[in-house]
Design a protein around this nucleic acid. Structure first.
Lengths: 189, 189, 189, 189
DNA sequence: GATGAATGAGTGTTCATTCAT
DNA sequence: TATGAATGAACACTCATTCAT
């Protein structure tokens, strides 16, 4: 359906050019539809953008939820979190970029869907990591380390990796293993 | 001089709203000058942006160069790299954000000053880190680890930290120490 | 259609005020449309101007082509050329003015549609006149005269007449007859 | 003096690009002065333009006045009028172009110096030619012809020649002779 | 005479959006 | 669903002009 052509094209363009750098005409042309059709399916450019963000976060959260499965060690849980992001980057590079790195301009508005979803995501991951680290330390699996700071740091780490990969600033293979091993050495006793 | 008001205002606005999300009228108003004055001092919006980017990178590179001083251990050199970035974030948050995270849209043009400077920066840091890690491993200071992948990873790490701090996604104190200790545990034997 | 209102208005304004002296806003207002509509139908002010020039020349060339009909004498052919121009001036004064007298500024660019069409027009008429004069001299209809110089001179004559009439510098009746008789006395044996 | 550099440059630019197509900045740059200097010497762009027009017409009228010398025949007087224009074209091509072909846009204002001077020029030449032709016919030197129409026609002729020569649409030598002979054959008995 | 800095009023152009069909 | 035609508001940028020095 043409609606999905619009979404697909818009996602790609928003991710590569930013929200303000993308025009509705460009979306229409590249999706091979006319501009008014965008307004038939969406209330406007903002609505289209928010729809994409919401969609992206939904897929993303679905995957996040699936992390809460049994694993033998805490580090395996952290490793899975990295794996999830590396996989998502490969499969839906534009979406993850928008989801994690979305329009700085939008983040000025605390009530914007971007800000709220990003906040939710950060809180979710933070809580996930905090639990892992705390339990890891308690069980003696992990070395001693400041919990909150390590959590924040790992969040920055993840977002930096996503940015780099989606901007194709590097394409080194073996990155995932390097990242995981780096963390393992640092964390696991 | 009013020229510097323009630069200062533009730097702030470009960093918080992006290039496309910032209008010349807005820059003029917030800098308390008239729009044509921007065009008196710069050739256009692009020129103003590039001027800021070039300025930012110049200050940044000057600091980077100063890293090549004697230090007793390789890890100290890496620690200094982190310190430099944390300091720069504090002093000139907008500039470092623009310098490290600049306009994704601009990076599509390989010849753009953004792309070229960013490339130079990444190469400089990569080379700096590679040398540290190689020598650290050779001297037995560091554990064994894949050099290139670790370098790329650390680059992502730095960019992630900058993004997070300038977007004020967190403001935890003790971050720097946590980051350095995290890396130390992972790397130093 | 409003597109034709734009063309009509623009033709009139370009002819009376010149290209640079006419603003798109003025065209829009006098055509009773909004400015962006000009940009919906044309790529820009230049495109609109070129469209008019091309249209004008097309109508003009169509008439020129129709000159190649049988006539008993060579002078009749020359007379017809004058008649054609006097008629065109009456019917489409703005267009002929733009076509023959178009924007001196545009003529600096050899590749501009104005320059090329004007060149084509001059060559067409020159060739037409050269043939007439040569044959007229050969057949004894015409007095002896330098062919090329006379051709150039007649071209200047035509362009001068057009300029004068469209600028309404005079409105004397009987001009056409006077011109034709002037030439006849000079040329015909 | 720099004032004359301004005048010279402005004359050239107005003649080749038109009044509206020429900016004060361009004049300043090409005359190697700064913009405010133009405003020191002239009241504004319009004043500069009018100054040039007035200057041009003054030089032109001075020459026209000198035509009233004794000549044996009426046709010689007409020949001298052509010679004067051909000479002026060679010596001061920009000025004569501005003087004879000046800004159509300006001619909409009947009180503008352009309109008034042009009118004066046309009336002067018309009166000069009318007298010549009348006397020529009366004395039997000229063939019979309608006086007013021939006068208007010759005016158009002159303006067409000037336009052609200054736009360099042709560069044929022998033009002057051809023109004069063309007229002689037509007029002289 | 001469200039660097500055501006009010506009210029061509683009944008997201709407309307009639 | 889908579109050709149209628009209000804004955009980057330029212009002739002025002012302080």
């Amino acid at each position: 359906m043409k609606k999905y052509d619009i979404i697909e094209t818009a996602t790609r363009l928003f991710a590569t050019q930013g929200f303000d750098g993308t025009t509705t005409l460009q979306i229409a042309r590249e999706a091979k539809v006319t501009e008014p059709l965008i307004y038939y399916h969406f209330e406007g450019k903002d609505d289209l953008f928010n729809h994409i963000i919401r969609n992206g976060f939904e897929a993303y959260f679905t995957r996040l939820e699936s992390l809460n499965q049994k694993t033998t060690t805490q580090f395996e849980k952290i490793e899975k979190l990295f794996t999830l992001h590396f996989d998502f980057i490969k499969e839906r590079p534009d979406e993850i970029y928008l989801v994690v790195s979305a329009c700085p301009a939008k983040l000025k508005d605390a009530k914007h869907v971007c800000t709220q979803k990003l906040d939710k995501q950060r809180k979710w991951i933070a809580s996930y990591l905090r639990k892992c680290i705390k339990e890891g330390i308690a069980s003696g699996e992990f070395k001693k380390m400041p919990v909150s700071e390590t959590v924040t740091m790992l969040l920055a780490f993840i977002s930096g990796i996503i940015r780099q990969r989606t901007l194709k600033l590097e394409s080194r293979r073996g990155m995932k293993k390097a990242v995981v091993e780096f963390c393992r050495r640092s964390m696991v006793r």
